[in-house]
Design a protein around this nucleic acid. Structure first.
Length: 547
RNA sequence: GGCCGGAUGCCCGAGCGGACCAAGGGAGCGGAUUGCAAAUCCGUGAUUCGUGGGUUCGAAUCCCACUCCGGCCUCCA
């Protein structure tokens, strides 16, 4: 049993062996302690589905390692230092992103919809978006947020989802270490720079060379008289007028963008991590610089396995605010998409493939997910647990991949599912294995008690990774629910007096409320729709463009 | 200009040299069922894998060339 992953650092697939493996050489993941860092969101705006694709990839990775019996210590930062906006230079002049968010908050206050008490306080603005992020992430079932919620107290939470503004002291220490070791220097402008020329491995991750970078196509690297090399990046920038600033040996100012991940990852997880994940755009410069800073400071390998998720497209186009195809979880939920459908839609394509996110993909996913959840319900009924056997709960160590007591067909499916994920997290193939097994079970009406128990156990194991079958759906709002019950009663009455025109009109109303109606011999039933009806949603991109 | 990926049926997507006349999910179509629907059930689709060469007993899978698409090269997950 080997688990293979594509390592961005070596540009090839490798067998994964944790630094602290478990006791068995045959199954080094069982009982292993794995340290994993996930580049998290910047909290000056709502996170979008592209962000979440990357976080969900890391989540599936972590859950799969847990499937193998490893204990994963995952850290995800919440970047609350603003850093730079697009129209400024890499040296950090210009306005802070958080500053722009603060502006926005002030606007919203003027228009009467105050989102925070004091929009001038960047801390409050960041807090606001941190809360929003946590809400979204809980709905999507990110295990790291479950860790966060379980952690006892603010100090413990800070070691799971750290906020850079609370670690500035460590950043300064890291920068001092780099100065002492000769990897950093103070430019004539008073800014502390990293000396790229002094770090031979710079460029290994991204496939760049320092030589190429100095010529950078179109001269996009920033030339500055104060720097030794155009690719040198700043570690600390003194600036007494910046919105967010802290005292330092180099004057009041703020840290460079890349410092936070190096510093917090090493502070919390140690100098050498097993895995570091992020979106593909992080490869350069962010992660390249992290390696340079961390290894420059410690002289030890920073990360053994780098993994990066490819970006997603929306309706075949790059997602961008200007194209109007930019979606947050909230946007989609407003359209009636259940967050678990979003989760499955974002993980069903393998992380290294470009994912084309479309309205159709949401429908497909909703259909597939609905079938699985129906099966869970049916099996739950067969073992006298109509609730579908409860929730699996967030990720937690479940022990080894024991398949004792399972029917052979169920064990075979689990083996195939696992093999697919072992192969560089091939979620598409894993789902195919699941559906090949599930399809005949969708049709079956009867299961013996043993069969149902075995199948449910298998599905629970699968769902430890997928996280879409046992978790409750978004509940209907209380007043909507009352409304639904009321309409349904009226429709039943209409049907009884054969007033089908009224009945059909009422059904349309119910559909609009996000429920679907089933007429059975014993009366009508309703259930929550997982995604909006096709005809009422012309296309997520076109609809967004209209806003 | 440099560095990466990709091109499989109507759509999404697996496939990593022989079990592929190509998995799985959707959509469509025909039928059963229904007041009409929904859901469900039955049936139905690539002799072919961007194009052209090559290697091989054998290629969607390996090699070469070409065409097209996408990403990164200091805002970005």
């Amino acid at each position: 049993m080997t688990v293979r992953f594509y390592n961005s650092l070596t540009h090839q697939q490798e067998d994964f062996v944790p630094q602290t493996p478990g006791p068995s050489a045959q199954a080094p993941l069982r009982g292993a302690q794995i340290r994993m860092y996930t580049c998290g969101p910047t909290v000056y705006d709502y996170a979008h589905i592209g962000n979440f694709r990357s976080f969900l990839f890391a989540d599936v990775l972590r859950r799969h390692l847990e499937w193998h019996g490893a204990t994963v210590r995952q850290v995800m930062n919440m970047t609350d230092v603003g850093h730079m906006t697009q129209d400024q230079t890499a040296d950090g002049a210009g306005r802070d992103k958080l500053e722009l968010a603060v502006e926005k908050m002030k606007q919203s206050k003027k228009s009467g919809a105050a989102l925070v008490e004091n929009p001038n306080d960047p801390g409050q603005v960041a807090d606001f978006f941190v809360r929003a992020f946590l809400e979204d992430a809980r709905r999507l079932g990110l295990a790291v947020v479950a860790d966060y919620d379980r952690a006892g107290g603010a100090a413990a939470q800070e070691r799971i989802m750290p906020r850079p503004t609370r670690h500035i002291g460590q950043f300064i220490e890291l920068i001092q270490k780099l100065l002492v070791r000769g990897h950093a220097y103070i430019g004539s402008d008073g800014v502390v720079y990293y000396d790229v020329g002094g770090f031979a491995a710079y460029g290994r991750l991204s496939g760049n060379s320092v030589e190429q970078l100095s010529h950078g196509a179109g001269g996009r690297t920033n030339e500055s008289a104060a720097k030794r090399h155009p690719a040198d990046f700043f570690l600390w920038k003194p600036d007494r007028h910046h919105l967010m600033r802290w005292p330092s040996p180099w004057g009041e100012g703020y840290p460079g963008w890349h410092v936070e991940c190096s510093s917090m990852a090493m502070e919390i997880l140690g100098e050498s991590l097993d895995i570091h994940t992020g979106g593909e755009d992080n490869i350069f410069p962010h992660h390249e610089c992290e390696i340079a800073q961390s290894e420059g400071a410690t002289g030890r390998p920073f990360v053994r396995l780098w993994m990066h998720a490819r970006h997603l497209m929306v309706e075949g186009e790059k997602m961008s605010k200007s194209k109007g195809n930019f979606f947050t979880i909230r946007d989609l939920m407003e359209k009636g998409v259940d967050p678990l459908v979003i989760r499955l839609a974002l993980i069903r394509t393998r992380y290294r493939e470009t994912l084309n996110f479309t309205l159709q993909s949401l429908h497909e996913t909703a259909g597939a997910m609905g079938s699985l959840r129906d099966l869970v319900e049916k099996l739950g009924g067969a073992v006298g647990d109509p609730g579908g056997a409860g929730e699996t709960g967030p990720a937690g160590p479940e022990g080894g991949p024991s398949t004792a007591c399972l029917e052979p067909a169920d064990a075979d499916m689990l083996a195939e599912f696992q093999n697919a994920l072992d192969d560089d997290l091939n979620t598409s193939a894993a789902l195919a294995a699941l559906f090949t097994w599930a399809a005949p079970r969708f049709k079956r009406k009867k299961f013996t008690d043993d069969e149902a128990r075995s199948s449910l156990a298998a599905l629970r194991r699968v769902d430890h990774v997928l996280g879409v079958m046992f978790k409750p759906l978004q509940p209907l709002a209380q007043d909507t629910r009352a409304n639904v019950e009321n309409l349904l009663r009226q429709r039943d009455e209409a049907r009884q007096r054969k007033d089908f025109a009224t009945a059909d009109r009422l059904r349309a109303n119910l559909t609009a409320l996000g429920v679907e109606v089933h007429d059975t011999p014993s009366g009508s039933q309703w259930r929550r729709r997982l995604a909006p009806e096709r005809s009422t949603a012309p296309g997520i991109a076109t609809e967004a463009a209209r806003r």
